[in-house]
Design a protein around this nucleic acid. Structure first.
Lengths: 155, 155
DNA sequence: CATGAAATAATGGCACA
DNA sequence: TGTGCCATTATTTCATG
């Protein structure tokens, strides 16, 4: 599945401004508004663009504490099992299986440190969790979305 | 700075669908389209909503390798200094200062493992970097955006 | 904040390369 | 297949109350 140069430019424009009109995008990429819409529809159908969302300042909506939690599992725990449990915590926004000594990595937002401690305690008490190691975010230096790479050939 | 119940619902709707029309949002929150627009404008002016973006499948735009890199600095390095250098790498999408033994944490996307290794080598060679520890993402289990918390009073 | 009018944008049909 | 042009419908946006 390959994106041609036009698709790439359109995706880039949508990453910069997800609410840009098709006409405005078309002006940048030299395409008519309907043509841009058709391509965006196709990108969505192909699963390249999975949706649109607002960028929101976490602290403004009550999430002032951010952390990464490494999960060490005491037995072979499948990714599906980890997902099944961790998704029940609204504080967990990302979950990965990873290389290294830990088995999984969770990205967690909490209202404050007390809230985070409570969530961490609950997660630690999950039957498949042997122990955890947390890294608390002190300050967010950079937060941006990636742009398409040039030579792009993969799924 | 406080969001009232209406703002909160609007932000929630925009997180779910960043391209939803003001009329459609208004139907959900019992407000007219112009009223929703005024509130969204205000939310943007206040810095609550910082923008809109597309959600894109990383692998579809050439980023198949994802990793977190912990940075250990050999001297007291300011966050500003870390930001100044790391932002020059398009592969670095997030950068934080953190608690624990590492000084900073980078979220990195690369085209493949070879590409990641090259970037890691470059970052390791930055004068303020003593050593690094990388965690490669094997599979992404969960990726979602947080929703506003209920009792929300902070900046 | 709602209403209503005018400007702008989205979207489907149709012809063409 | 993909595009541009056109017409229709929907949305945005700004006036006023």
């Amino acid at each position: 599945m390959t994106l041609d140069a036009l698709d790439e430019q359109i995706v880039r424009a949508l990453l910069v401004d997800g609410r840009a009109s098709y006409g405005a995008i078309g002006a940048k990429v030299n395409l008519s508004a309907p043509a841009v819409k058709r391509r965006v529809d196709r990108l969505r159908a192909r699963g390249v663009v999975t949706g649109f969302t607002a960028r929101v300042e976490p602290s403004a909506i009550g999430w002032s504490t951010e952390a990464y939690v490494e999960l060490f599992c005491n037995r072979r725990t499948s990714g599906a099992e980890i997902l099944e449990r961790t998704r029940t915590y609204p504080e967990v926004v990302e979950a990965f299986t990873v290389t290294g000594d830990a088995d999984a990595l969770l990205h967690v937002f909490a209202g404050d440190m007390q809230h985070f401690e409570r969530v961490l305690t609950q997660i630690s008490a999950e039957p498949f969790v042997a122990r955890t190691r947390s890294v608390i975010v002190l300050s967010s230096l950079l937060r941006r979305s990636q742009t398409p790479r040039e030579g792009d050939t993969d799924a």
